[in-house]
Amino acid sequence: MALQIACTTDDLGPEEAKLVELVGAAGTVPVAVVRDADGEFHAISDVCSHGAVSLSDGEVEGCLVECWLHGSQFDLRTGRPLQLPAIKPVPVYPVSVEDGNVLVDVDATVAVAS
């Protein structure tokens, strides 16, 4: 696991998102680091699977992020789309919080039970 610092915990308030670009084995990866309504941190691909636009520019509500272009909503825990028009999930990356830093591993994805 190659965790790297994406931001600090102070960079995001509840229901806020931030675009960060991290370097992984396959190159630069755009990641939306999101703090949900409960204060938990999540990291998902910043690219909407439907419209190829930035998810970090969308609205965060609870544990969902909504794509600003067409309104698709994605579960921050699973990456699954919960609102059309998106039908493909987006990758979700492992997150750890240590000493006020939000760490993300873009070389791994979170396995989600079906």
Results as ranks from 00 to 15, higher is better:
Arg77Cys: 11
Val97Arg: 06
Ser96Glu: 15
Asp105Tyr: 03
Asp38Gln: 14
Val31Phe: 06
Gly58Met: 03
Glu40Val: 15
Ala6Ile: 13
Glu61Ile: 12
Pro14Gln: 12
Arg80Asn: 12
Ala113Cys: 09
Thr109Ile: 12
Thr78Ser: 15
Ala2Val: 12
Ala25Phe: 00
Phe41Ala: 09
Thr78Ile: 02
Val90Pro: 05
Pro89Lys: 09
Ala6Tyr: 06
Asp11Cys: 12
Pro81Ile: 05
Thr8Asp: 10
His50Trp: 10
Glu98Gly: 05
Ala2Pro: 11
Ala113Phe: 13
Leu82Arg: 14
Asp46Arg: 03
Val33Glu: 05
Val20Glu: 01
Asp99Leu: 02
Leu103Tyr: 02
Ala32Ile: 02
Asp99Lys: 06
Ser49Ile: 04
Gly13Pro: 08
Trp68Cys: 12
Thr8Met: 06
Leu103Phe: 03
Leu19Val: 07
Val65Gln: 04
Leu12Trp: 03
Ala17Glu: 03
Thr78Asn: 06
Ala37Val: 13
Gly79Asn: 04
Val106Phe: 01
Met1Ser: 15
Gly62Met: 02
His42Ser: 11
Thr8Gly: 15
Pro89Trp: 00
Glu16Cys: 13
Glu59Thr: 13
Ala52His: 10
Glu59Val: 13
Phe41Ser: 06
Val102Phe: 02
Ile5Glu: 15
Cys67Asp: 03
Val102Lys: 05
Leu82Thr: 13
Ser45Asn: 09
Glu21Gly: 06
Val106Lys: 01
Thr78Glu: 02
Val34Pro: 07
Ser96Thr: 14
Asp10Asn: 15
Ser72Pro: 11
Gly51His: 09
Gln73Cys: 15
